[in-house]
Amino acid sequence: MRPFKYSTTNDINVAVKMLQVKGHAKLLGGGTNILDLMKEDVEHPEELIDITGLSYTQIKSISSGPNAEGISIGALCKNTDTANDPIIRQNFPLVAQAILAGASAQIRNMATNGGNLNQRTRCSYFYDIAMPCNKREPGAGCAAIEGINKMHAIFGWSKDCVAVHPSDLCVALVALDAIVKVMGAGGKERLIQFSDYHRLPGTDPQKDNNLQQEEIITEIQLPKNNFASKSYYLKVRDRSSYAFALVSVAAAIEMAGNQIKQVRIAMGGVSHKPWRAYEAEQFLINKTPDEANFNLAAELEMRNAKPLKHNKFKVELGIRTMVRALTQAMNGGKHT
């Protein structure tokens, strides 16, 4: 870990200003990812700005604006507090389940929601500074594309990067059409659709998301929805807990009579960004929620998958995980 200056501020405008002026400064929230990366010499900020003193820790209802009746989750609210907030558990159980599927209790007690969005891939070539990696060092080449890529992307990868985004929470958030609220220079706020927040790698995989250097996430907004009684987050991994996803699926259904009125499906562990399964969703609208339809929808979505040498299984696993998640959602989203 390189030497760095540690500073704190309770003023978001000061924090934004510091980021703006100091190109090599980074934010410190829960620290669960940035410290790990700094120890590996992957990240090396010259200054760490501890923003845990900022006030964005609340979970509250939104009373007006385009997201009225939705909910606002503070970027600095801890994962544990978010998952256990009574409103989240009751009205957005998909979010709670996804958070609880990630990491360990200790890490969830430390990690912030904003930090979860901005965590970096766990691609082991990215983490190993002895290996080439375009995300870590643009132009160095991608070791994973011809290497060991069992954990890597099947959607949206480029020849420069095949890494996946490791978050569980983000999979639920993209499914629920969340909105990321950020504070920028001069106190200017902007809203980013969650599906636009993270990026595909393209030719510049060093950029994980569309946040500007000086911008700070302040809130995540969740629009009101009618999915609470039929949603489920399913995570398949190499061991039963405390592991990153091979494939995960967030599924949420709203019925009209015995037909699907609205459905949201997103996948984790398959792409550089949390992957929204639009084709599958579209197929299922106005269909009956049976296994045959779920299968057809999943197959339709996975048709576009481009697996690598070691992750062909993810295509079939993706189908089955999607079908199971949708089925569980229909069954009331209970964990079995």
Binding site: A96, Q97, L100, A105
Partner: peptide
């Protein structure tokens, strides 16, 4: 710490029904 978490009704990934109160 787990004892406190349970007392507070905090959920886990294997909690059967996340929507039930803590």
């Amino acid at each position: 710490a787990l004892m406190t978490e349970v007392k507070n009704g905090e959920a886990s990934y294997v909690t059967p029904d996340i929507r039930l109160p803590g």
